[in-house]
């Protein structure tokens, strides 16, 4: 095995995302950023492949200097090197532009055997990078993978589709996007967290890549006009009696009053 490239998004940490109560807009400025859960599973899979097959694991992120902090977690998990395509702080690019930047950076990381990514990022929920890179790099594409193995230099994967599980084979190199069920990502030890600080984080400037800088500075194909967190008013009543039996009685009483029970 040569190199496995894992695409990691510098994403909004959903568990800490707050909403402005008056405007119902998510407070994105200064929101904590983190590698998302699915991306970590892609990285975990890469690390397991490395443990079996050798080679090195590189991560690749479109972000800015601030992406270094979330990437430390990836290095602590065991990635050998992290690469950032630096588009500058506060710059937003759409999925089309992101994929073109990733493609250009991947071409700089040749030779590689495998590109792994999550089936989607949990903040923007787009699920586009795997398929877009397969198209741009002209490689086999395997999505929604919940089991992955390398057998005799070929990939064998189980894909989770709505109507069936498909067992598929493909030649390397390939682009694989993984589902939540593929593995449980490791939690780095204190020791590996310390060691991560001395691992290389390498930045590509746009000018150093084979792309036109206008794709970043210019108008994007997709524009986000607004984002709102619609409020669903809930009563949030904690039902409590002297005993648990009484609490249950009270709950049933509430439900009868609401008219939602259909005890026939």
């Amino acid at each position: 095995m040569n190199r496995v490239i894992v695409l990691l998004k510098d994403a909004v940490d959903l568990s800490e995302l707050k909403v402005d109560p008056s405007t119902r807009k998510p407070l994105l400025e200064g929101a904590k950023r983190r590698i998302g859960e699915l991306d970590k599973r892609a990285l975990e899979e890469a690390l397991r492949i490395k443990e079996r097959e050798g080679g090195e694991v590189c991560t690749l992120t479109v972000g800015d200097e601030g992406s270094r902090t979330p990437l430390l977690e990836a290095l602590a998990m065991g990635a050998d090197k992290a690469y950032i395509v630096n588009i500058g702080t506060g710059v937003w690019v759409d999925t089309l532009t992101t994929s073109i930047l990733l493609e250009a950076a991947v071409r700089r990381l040749t030779p590689f055997d495998l590109i792994l990514c999550g089936e989607m990022s949990l903040d923007s929920l787009s699920s586009q990078m795997g398929p877009r890179l397969a198209e741009l790099l002209d490689l086999p594409q395997i999505t929604y993978v919940k089991q992955l193995a390398i057998e005799g230099g070929r990939l064998k994967a189980v894909r989770d589709l709505e109507d069936a599980d498909e067992v598929v084979q493909a030649d390397l190199p390939a682009v694989v996007s993984v589902s939540r069920e593929i593995n449980e990502p490791r939690i780095p030890s204190l020791m590996s967290i310390m060691k991560a600080r001395s691992k290389p984080i390498i930045t590509f400037d746009i000018a150093s890549l084979d792309v036109s800088p206008e794709i970043v500075s210019g108008e994007q194909s997709i524009e986000i006009i607004s984002v709102e967190a619609p409020q669903v008013e809930r009563k949030r009543i904690i039902v409590k009696g002297e005993t648990i039996e009484e609490s249950v009685e009270k709950l049933v009483h509430h439900l009868v009053t609401e008219g939602v029970l259909e005890v026939r």
């Binding site: 959903l14 949990l122 994007q220 986000i224 006009i225 967190a229």
Partner: peptide, 13 residues
């Protein structure tokens, strides 16, 4: 977006 907690309005140009 945001795990399903928010709704984005987007324009394709």
């Amino acid at each position: 977006v945001y795990g399903g907690s928010a709704v984005a309005l987007e324009r394709s140009r």
